[in-house]
Structure formats: C-alpha cells, structure tokens
C-alpha cells in the first residue's frame, strides 16, 4: 500500500463502519415500522394469508414508514447544509425561520386551494409543497436580511428565532381565521406522519435525490467555508453563487419535509452532530450521512410515537422536541464543561 492510499485509511474505515451500522439500523427500523400499528407491535411477516393485514401494511404503515424516513433525511440534509453554510453548529431549519415559513406557506395554500392535508390529488400536493418551499425560502431570506448577513452567529440565531415566532404566529392566525383548516393545522404544527401517503413519498423522494445530488456536488464549497469566508474566496469559491444554491436546497428540503409531516424540531440539528461525534469527514460525506442519520432518527421517533400509547398516537413532533431539546441542552452543557477546562 502506498503512502497516498494509506493517508485517508482510518477515516475511510470509520465512515464505512458508520455507513454499514446505519444501513443495518435503518433496515431494522423499516421492519419494526411496518410491524407497528394501533394494535401494538406485531411482526408483519407473520401476517401470512391475511390480505386485510397486508392491505393495512401496504396502504398505511409502509408509506408512513417511508415518509418518516424521507422527512428525517430531508431535515438531516437541511441541518448539515445550514450548519456548514452559516458556520454555526447550532444552525437548524427550525432555528432559522425556514420551518415556520414553510408552515405559513402550507396554511395559506390550504386556504387558497381549498384543500386538505389528506389530499392525495397530485396537483394539490404539489401546490402545498410549492407553497411550503416559498415560505421556507422567505423565512431564511428574512432571517439573513435581519441578521445583516452570515457573519454574526448570535444575531443570526436571534433573528431566526424572531422570524420563526412571527411567521409561526401568522400561520396560527390564518388557521384560527379559517376554522375548516384549524384542526388539521393543529395536528400539523405538532408534527405527524399520519397525513402522508404514497404521493407524499414520491414527492419527497424526488426532492431528496435532487437536493442530495446538488448539495453533494457543491460539498467542497462548504469545506472551504469552514476555513472562513476570505479563505474560501481566495480558493476561488464563488461565495454568492454557492450561498444562493445552498439556500435554495435548504428551502427545498425544509419546505418539502414540512409540507408533508409538519413542524418537526431538532432532527436537523442532531443528525449532523451525531455524525460528527463518530467521525471527522468532509461535507461530501457529512451531507449524505447526516441525511441517513436524520432519516433513522425520525423513523425511530415515529415508531415510538405510534407504539408508546397504542392504540392512540403521540404527535412525533412532540417526541423530537423533547428528545432533541434535551440533546441540545446536554450539548450546551457539555461544551460549557469543555471550555471551562480548556
């Protein structure tokens, strides 16, 4: 083996192990996801000959399982992009105003299109997704405008929280003013996979593949940004173009996920952190692994939400908020402890 080949070996081995572990966990979660229903956990392979049970698995559990994984993957990707783009380990679609912007977009689309979140009509689902995309885009752009750019971490997060609160309040206002969408929006605000079917799966799959390919192809720009804006510029990176494309992907991933499953906090924050805690990788790998980890996190949370108080369900957004929020607090505590001893 040459020195060149040896140079990256330990990192590659760690990435390979993490990828394999993630694959096994994801497969296991898919099997469990298809086995969990209102009657509790029952391995789906034992339903031999019961066509009704297979119908439930194919029409309800399987699309929900896919939707949970795809939404988590989109949030994980969006989180990794946000943290790299803003050079801020606390950046998250939820904290940058994009998730609330997407929610406002969904509320307005439901009113204007006179449709329901359960609609399987393609035109309606694409309409809701597009509205969520433009809402997410508006949320991020307003946050950046209020923060006067990307440089000031605290200003950016503060602006993101404020924009999130205002856009979220506007979403609630429009929901209250239109009682026909109020109940659906309340469930939507807490995050749920129960609205989504196969059409949502297809829309999210297309958005995920497109976003991953585009983000992966520009991963080097995020690596260069890790060295600072001026260094990235000196390395020939067109920062304005790169930022515009990444904000587009961020809005697309967040908007698509939020339009199908509602507000789900902290998956986008936790997924890249979990990857970084296991291995040190460039953004090419980080973006893809964060997407995979995000998918597994949300799918695991969705299974818990369905199983914990079966036959009733918890909103999955509640679980991710409790678990993710606790993780964020622990992270802040751990960082404070480390800096105290430095």
């Amino acid at each position: 083996m040459t020195t060149i080949q040896a140079a990256n070996l330990p990192s590659r081995v760690r990435v390979w192990r993490l990828s394999m572990t993630l694959l096994v966990i994801t497969c296991a979660l898919f099997i469990i996801g298809m086995s969990v229903g209102s009657t509790g956990i029952k391995p789906f392979l034992f339903n031999t000959g019961d066509t009704g049970a297979w119908q439930i698995i194919f029409d309800i559990r399987l699309p929900r399982t896919f939707v949970a994984w795809l939404a988590g993957a989109l949030f994980g990707l969006a989180g990794a992009i946000a943290q790299g783009l803003f050079r801020n380990p606390l950046a998250d679609p939820y904290l940058l105003g994009s998730a609330s912007g997407a929610t406002l977009g969904v509320a307005l689309s439901l009113i204007l299109l006179s449709t329901s979140l359960y609609a399987e009509n393609w035109f309606m689902r694409i309409g809701i997704t597009s509205a969520a995309f433009f809402g997410a885009l508006a949320g991020v752009l307003i946050t950046i405008f209020l923060a006067k750019g990307f440089q000031h971490t605290f200003r950016l997060l503060l602006a993101g929280v404020i924009v999130g609160v205002i856009l979220g309040a506007l979403g609630s206002f429009f929901s209250i003013m239109n009682p026909e969408i109020l109940q659906a929006m309340q469930a939507f605000m807490l995050g749920t996979t129960s609205f989504a079917g196969w059409s949502a799966c297809l829309i999210m799959s297309i958005a995920l593949i497109f976003s991953c390919v585009l983000a992966w192809s520009l991963g080097k720009a995020l690596d260069a940004l890790a060295l600072g804006e001026l260094t990235a510029l000196s390395l020939g990176i067109d920062l304005n173009l790169a930022r515009a494309i990444f904000i587009f992907i961020l809005a697309l991933a967040t908007g698509t996920a939020v339009s199908q499953v509602g507000i789900i906090a902290f998956v986008g924050l936790a997924a890249p952190h979990l990857v970084r805690s296991q291995t040190n990788v460039t953004h090419h790998t980080l973006l893809l692994l964060s997407s995979g980890v995000g998918g597994s996190l949300l799918l695991a949370a969705d299974i818990l939400a369905r199983a914990l108080i079966a036959p009733q369900e918890l909103p999955v957004g509640l679980l991710t908020a409790i678990l993710g929020g606790s993780y964020l607090l622990w992270l802040m505590h751990a960082k404070q402890a480390v800096s105290r001893y430095k």
């Binding site: 140079a7 990256n8 990192s11 790299g84 050079r87 080097k220 690596d223 260069a224 890790a226 060295l227 600072g228 001026l230 260094t231 000196s234 390395l235 020939g236 990176i237 970084r276 040190n280 990788v281 460039t282």
Partner: peptide, 28 residues
C-alpha cells in the same frame, strides 16, 4: 486562486476537518 495563495491572520477553522482533508482544500 491558482496564481495567488493567501493565509489570513489568526485564520479560524470552525470545523472538525481532518488535517489531511484541510490541506487538500489548498488544491481546490
């Protein structure tokens, strides 16, 4: 960028890149 290399003062590296990957960025 090919003609002029620049090293800033107190360059802050915000990420946890590996040393080898970081130096490879010079080849961008």
């Amino acid at each position: 960028a090919k003609k002029i290399a620049w090293l800033g003062q107190n360059e802050v590296v915000s990420d946890d890149l590996l040393v080898y990957d970081l130096v490879m960025l010079g080849r961008l």
